[in-house]
Nucleic acid binder design. Structure first.
Lengths: 332, 332
DNA sequence: GTGAAAGCGCTAACAG
DNA sequence: CTGTTAGCGCTTTCAC
């Protein structure tokens, strides 16, 4: 393994000069630069980032903890974050928490041990007690993504309440009164906020929330399928369904289809979260789509800002969703 | 920031003892261990992984370069790899090459600089000339994933030829003779091998390959949609279509739908790659599904083995696909 | 069972 | 414009 010292010797300069030509951190005479570059080329030298990080105190690495890499939504999120970060010269370490604080803690501890310059976390339920304090103690820049918490740090999440409310109101406008909702995993803001939007829409029209029409899908496709199936097979089947995230949508659609029911004929359907292939479903799904790219890019920018020590109060950013009016709601 | 030295001082021992209790690398008297642990707890000490890596020469980090984080297929792959790796105490740095060797080179160089203990790469076209030599030169353990190359290293990829052949033969068995194929991005083995399977099936029945029926989708949904649309709107429209990966499938279905054609009524359809929601499409897709979990887990195991210096000749593993016979082919 | 000391390969004052 | 010199915080012989 060739080190900076080897290169320096070969070029007849000091290691510090080699370091400076490599990093452009100080003026170097053109001729010596050439000699150094020649030596680098000759030896095939490649700097040791670990030593570099130790000496410099920065790793140019950021960590990302999310809850389900298999969910296309998070895949896009990782993609957006990765791009913004790599453009800035950082690399991304990803960890999948499976929405469990224990795994989340293991992941973030490991990231902290590795001295990441910052981290982005989609907090699992209970995160504010279990894992965030530990991160805060180290002073590592942190931005929360996808779910908001009552803590003092940068956060970026989609607009939830208003979007869910619009979705529900649309159904109400079409005359539906028995509207069921399929909720995501409990304990996180997205679930709560979206549910709030649903409740607000109903309440606003003087309709009470019927507990029997609230199905807990737990953000598991299988659970949602089972529960929705049970509901739709029961006597008090709703006339419309609103699904609160893409996993819930898949489960719901499977349930409906397995019962031989048709959408929107037998039951109207709208959902939070859009799919790239929404218009290939039959019928096309009326949905509130998140702007995942913006969410990811924004989170990365906020983090980069903190890493650069550009201070300021914590910011909480809501990214608007886009309403896609298609046909599963029963319109047109 | 508290260091190991601080802990040692507080516990009244040497830094080396602290290191040993932390790592379990040598026998430590129970009583001193207790004192050390108390000191650690008291200071909230957390070891510096960077210093650790520099001293030990291992980072417990592996890099992964893939071509499209937004593709659900790769999302699952990352997930599988991440799980296997984190179980073994490693973290994963991901980079998205967008199937371009230039980005791939930047990513792998950055990973190498960071002294990853190993890396997994889904090679872009041209990788063997551009990026793999550089990796080989460092001696960093490497396993290729998703696409195979004619190079000496561990590789794991799905079964392509036979699966594509089966798909095509199924169409042939149903009486189709004008079968179009939608190919993925050129220059990688999956595209070539799957196409070979298509050709073999036709040839075997004495049917020549009609160049007009070979559409280049370039692994871009948009391109596939445009090209398939053109083909299906033309005079010599095929009676059946075989799509070679999930992005091509989305594009193809969009094209078919936009023309108001029906599957399998107007054109039969089969595809390589399965979707979690395959049976929500209308009609349900007959597909050859990859076992992504196995591919990812296998790659991780092979890599771990190399990292542990368990030698042996390079292994090339083919993971079988699963044939899902549904209705888009026109059966039943 | 424990400590001292020599690095790991680089960065960044500090001096010239 | 360039070299010298301390470290960065840990692991790991080697010695006791």
């Amino acid at each position: 393994m060739t080190t900076m010292g080897d290169v320096a010797r070969l070029a007849g300069v000091s290691a510090s000069t080699v370091s400076h030509v490599l990093n452009g951190t100080r003026k170097v005479d053109a001729s010596t630069r050439v000699r150094v570059e020649a030596a680098i080329a000759e030896t095939g030298y490649r700097r040791n980032g670990v030593a570099r990080s130790l000496a410099a105190g920065r790793t140019h690495t950021v960590g990302l903890s999310i809850s389900a890499l298999t969910n296309p939504y998070f895949g896009s999120l990782v993609h957006a974050v990765e791009r913004a970060l790599s453009d800035a010269g950082y690399v991304l370490i990803v960890g999948d928490s499976h929405d469990a604080v224990e795994s989340e803690k293991r992941i973030t501890d490991s990231l902290l041990d590795r001295q990441v310059d910052g981290m982005i976390v989609a907090p699992a339920a209970g995160s504010e007690r279990s894992t965030l304090p530990g991160i805060a103690r180290t002073g590592t820049p942190l931005v929360l993504i996808d779910r908001m918490l009552d803590v003092d740090c940068d956060q970026v999440a989609p607009e939830n309440t208003t979007s869910a409310r619009m979705l529900t109101e649309h159904l109400l406008d079409l005359g539906h009164r028995r509207i069921a909702v399929v909720r995501g995993i409990p304990g996180i803001s997205s679930t709560t906020e979206r549910f709030d939007g649903y409740v607000a829409a109903l309440t606003d029209r003087g309709i009470g929330v019927d507990a029997a029409l609230v199905v807990e899908g737990e953000s598991s496709t299988d659970v949602a399928e089972r529960e929705v199936r049970a509901l739709m097979a029961s006597a008090n089947r709703p006339t419309a369904l609103v699904s609160m995230n893409n996993a819930m949508t898949i489960g719901t659609l499977k349930a409906v289809r397995s019962l031989g029911l048709s959408i929107p004929g037998d039951v109207a359907f709208v959902c939070y979260d859009d799919f790239e292939w929404s218009d290939l479903f039959d019928p096309k799904l009326t949905a509130a789509g998140q702007d995942v790219e913006t969410i990811g890019a924004t989170a990365a920018q906020l983090l980069l800002r903190r890493i650069r020590k550009e201070d300021g109060p914590p910011r909480r950013i809501r990214v608007p969703t886009m309403f896609h009016h298609r046909s599963s709601c029963g319109c047109r």
